[in-house]
Nucleic acid binder design. Sequence first.
RNA 1: CGGGGAGUAGCGCAGCCUGGUAGCGCGUUUGGUUCGGGACCAAAAGGUCAGGGGUUCGAAUCCCCUCUCCCCGACCA
Length: 576
Amino acid sequence: MRWTKTLVATLREEPQEAEIISHKLLLRAGLIRRLAGGLYTFLPLGLRALRKVEAIVREEMDRAGALEVLMPALQPAELWEQSDRLTTMGPNMFKLKDRHDRLMTLGPTHEEVITDLVSREISSYRQLPATFYQIQTKFRDEIRPRFGLMRAKEFIMKDAYSFDVSSEAADASYKAMYDAYKRLFARCGLRTKPVEADTGDIGGSSSHEFMVMAEAGEDAVIECSKCSYAANVERAERRVTVAQPAGDTPATLKVDTPDVRTIAAVSAFLKVPPAKLIKTVIYLADNKPVAALVAGDREINEPKLKRALDAKTLEIAPDNIVTEVTDAPVGFAGPVGLSIPIYADLSLTNAADMVTGANAADAHLLHVDLTRDANVTAYRDISVVNAGDACPRCNGELCVARGIEVGHVFKLGTKYTEAFEATYQDESGKAEPIVMGCYGIGVTRVLQAIVEQSHDNNGVIWPVSTAPYAVGLLSLDPSDTAVAATVTELEAQLEAAGIDVLVDDRDERPGVKFKDADLIGFPLRVVVGAKGLAKGFIEIKQRSAVESVFAPPAEALETIQKTINTMLAELTAGQP
RNA sequence: CGGGGAGUAGCGCAGCCUGGUAGCGCGUUUGGUUCGGGACCAAAAGGUCAGGGGUUCGAAUCCCCUCUCCCCGACCA
């Protein structure tokens, strides 16, 4: 392809709309343009890179034995009522009505559609296991779209669904997808880290997220400095050493704390370290009030609390509920005397001589012994893990990093298959629910994650597997007949060899071409100039390298092919 | 939805405080000189100053309302 025949919309200056580097580069290198918040057009270069990622995903799904299908993006809302997700997923879904006033949704994911299909088409154990996948546009009414492709309202996702006769068999399907993911991301040039994750609204028993570690990532990841333990902060646990019962705490004492409400303020006012305070937060779990307790130097982990309560919905209670439940203004809640269920963090077991809100205006209680003075319903792990906490698996220390979630694999069990009566008959003719797994990859997000992980000050550094063009062929003197002939010949050779090449045939100064080539990030840059050619060579340079190699035009093709093959081999080295 | 920032030429910005009828750089078009790391000279095109209302002889500028975009929190591939 010739530069002058396609649209290469590079930007010299940093676009004002972008904050993080990958977003800036996607715009500057001319891959995407914003239509509205969370909605992007893929320009020719961007679409090429996207197609490369899709092709890799497709190849690895096929290799793993998954079957490609394509399901409708537009779906009847009743389907979502059947799985009871119209409420849980509800606000995230785009809803519309057809001309017959029938409520439809734009699919944010496809568990319902695939399970409905499977319930109709699969009836025998002989048809299992089976895994289906698709690469398709998803729609989510995100609360806050951001960072370009990272969190968009419309995005491309690869979603796969496995169906098995038993949870043991499902584990094998899960493992197959997990391994396919590792290989697939490696082929895309991404370094990923699988971490234990929360299942969220999808549901199911356990899951792993594939994280691209990056400062710009939206997720906090907890990692052990010694062992391989890694988990999303929403899920992460820590080793808690439970205190012995104290027994000698003085009686509780109510003290005046006029308008002193926050942990920091109470700590300063009473001269007590935050760790000796108990933070009491009133939540509505499935619309019923509960109290959650953690030490004053910790935060409540809402996903963990939600799981501990086995609640469908969880939100901080509005002020009027807090006032009603605690009989005090907001800021003075405490566990003593509360009549609602109280869930305390595991680390508060046997906590004694603590400071809590008094459930009365402008007052706190000293010397609270949780076991003695409060009616705690249960002690559960409900606090956010902090850097420095103890690893739950070994004696190491935990640390915090950030990651971009590019893939997520779930063991779903029978949640959906039961809702849709997707059963199979076993050897004895007995109907059993099919055991399900689901597996997502944010294809458009992967594209941006690659850029986030692979760039320098001059622009993108594409892995050869996903670059819009593997080779940028710069014709420095397009009007020079020898140069033009050499370029045309090499272009034809490369295309015949199946290597993508973009020829910069513009009437521009060399500096402009070099800058654009670096910005776009061709893995290989091949330069043909009048001076070099007169000496009998052309220049070949890897984007990631400092040094160039020089070769006679006749050997250029072979050198380029070899280099590309080496780069491709490096991507899959060490993969299953 | 809560908190913060911003909308002026295709892009990046100044002008606003202290009202007087819009400017700079880049890009674009034309001509010329250049030509291995974002050249130079000359000429030119290009603006509902986000939208609506108000104050005023006069509003990009002051006041009110609305919209959009970006950033921080709840959502997630």
